[in-house]
């Protein structure tokens, strides 16, 4: 029974599942981006901004932003609970990670919807 209140899904099974679903989203985005950049070696600003203005691409990128938040929280939570034994230091580390993730998500949304 997991009683750690800082785990993302409040249960190891949820975290396990979320980690895998987000991993699949992130890997599909990685394959797509690498493929897109390899197929467009002479990429122009117009092509690049047109791609990111498309609704489907914004939805895909937003899914990736949220996946990054969840995936990195679960990963860094696992690492910090393994290696940082002192509660205060661990709480500080996890807080820093949480703030950084929040900044990444807001920053990403701003870039995507600021086009």
């Amino acid at each position: 029974m997991v009683t750690q209140v800082t785990s993302f899904g409040r249960s190891g099974l949820y975290d396990w599942m979320i980690q895998r679903v987000s991993a699949i989203v992130l890997s599909l985005y990685t394959i797509f981006m690498v493929g897109f950049l390899l197929l467009n070696p002479d990429l122009t600003y117009d092509q690049w901004s047109t791609l990111h203005e498309a609704t489907w691409m914004r939805v895909f990128s937003l899914m990736v932003l949220l996946s990054i938040g969840m995936h990195s929280w679960i990963g860094l939570w696992s690492i910090s609970t393994d290696y940082i034994k002192a509660t205060g230091a661990r709480f500080f580390f996890q807080s820093l990670c949480g703030i950084t993730m929040f900044v990444y998500i807001v920053w990403g949304i701003q870039v995507l919807w600021g086009l």
Binding site: Y45, I68, S72, L76, T100, W107, G108
Partner: peptide
């Protein structure tokens, strides 16, 4: 590598932001 990626995301977000901000930023 997970930790490196989490830190490296700052760089990726920065160039992603700049590359979409304007033609000048992209260049």
């Amino acid at each position: 590598t997970g930790i490196i990626l989490f830190v490296g995301l700052a760089f990726l977000f920065y160039i992603f932001d700049l590359s979409l901000a304007s033609q000048q930023g992209f260049d």
